[in-house]
């Protein structure tokens, strides 16, 4: 049953991705609207499969690569889908958001069958805040990167995809999403520190992911300084937003896979 629901969601995202590409290529707004609805429809089986796995293993989606990435894809599509209900500008970004969600689903399925108990330190309300804001951080930086990517695309070929928002608006959206990511990363770090203090009596231990999170937050701070103090905007900021995405991916996924850390369990793949 879970497998069926999972593939139903993947199929919906794949169809929606195709719909957006075709809708943009052939300038068919109706196709984009339909693709948006298909993507939203895909959220239903996706939510169901997340709920079923939750009920089966007895914990939320935060303890294996499948659970983590699948839930990240769900939140990404949900956040974009809801924002797109309010703004046709944001809807057009589906052409970049949905392929990312599709790829996340594809990466997650490699550990679909893996089910593991969570360690006792997960018995804390800080977990909800820490992981919840980690997810929001992931969604925000992915949206920022998609928007920055759209900006660069638009800049290189201004006439290719007139349905995308204007460059100035894409630049503004990317900045707004980056600021949200900065906030959510900050809350994630603070909630993690408070959680560590509750469990181990120390709020900071220079664990590789703790440190990388802090480095990423500082890197975001530097990038925001360029924007605010030096009035950097446009292509330079779009590239820096993609650099911010690289930092975020290292923090969220790469370190947990490559380095022994107290956070290894959430990306465990075998």
């Amino acid at each position: 049953m879970q497998s069926l629901l999972f593939w139903a969601a993947v199929t919906a995202y794949a169809l929606a991705t195709a719909g957006f590409f075709l809708g943009l290529a052939f300038e068919q707004p109706a196709w984009r609207r339909a693709a948006h609805l298909v993507a939203l429809a895909g959220l239903a089986p996706h939510a169901a499969v997340i709920g079923l796995r939750w009920a089966e293993v007895g914990h939320g989606p935060y303890n294996t690569r499948y659970e983590v990435l699948s839930f990240q894809a769900f939140l990404l599509v949900a956040a974009w889908g809801l924002l797109a209900l309010r703004s046709a500008n944001v809807r057009s970004l589906g052409v970049l958001v949905l392929p990312v969600a599709f790829l996340l689903m594809g990466f997650s399925v490699s550990t679909f069958g893996l089910k593991k108990e969570v360690p006792i330190i997960f018995k804390s309300w800080w977990l909800v805040l820490h992981i919840g804001f980690a997810k929001l951080f992931g969604v925000s930086i992915l949206l920022a990167a998609c928007t920055a990517g759209a900006f660069l695309w638009r800049r290189r070929r201004p006439g290719a995809l007139p349905s995308l928002p204007s460059q100035a608006r894409l630049d503004l959206y990317a900045h707004q999403f980056l600021l949200s990511a900065f906030l959510f990363l900050g809350v994630m770090i603070a909630a993690g520190a408070l959680w560590a203090n509750q469990s181990w009596g120390r709020y900071w231990g220079w664990d590789p992911i703790e440190t990388t999170s802090l480095v990423t937050w500082i890197a975001f701070g530097v990038i925001l300084h360029f924007r605010v103090l030096h009035r950097w905007e446009g292509a330079r900021m779009a590239w820096l937003t993609l650099v911010a995405l690289a930092f975020a991916l290292v923090t969220l996924y790469v370190v947990a896979v490559m380095v022994p850390t107290i956070h290894n369990s959430y990306m465990v793949g075998s």
């Binding site: 220079w206 590789p208 440190t211 990388t212 802090l214 480095v215 500082i218 890197a219 530097v222 380095v259």
Partner: peptide, 11 residues
């Protein structure tokens, strides 16, 4: 500098 030091220190 702090970000670079932090990254090297963590790894």
């Amino acid at each position: 500098s702090l970000a670079a030091f932090g990254a090297l220190g963590a790894w």
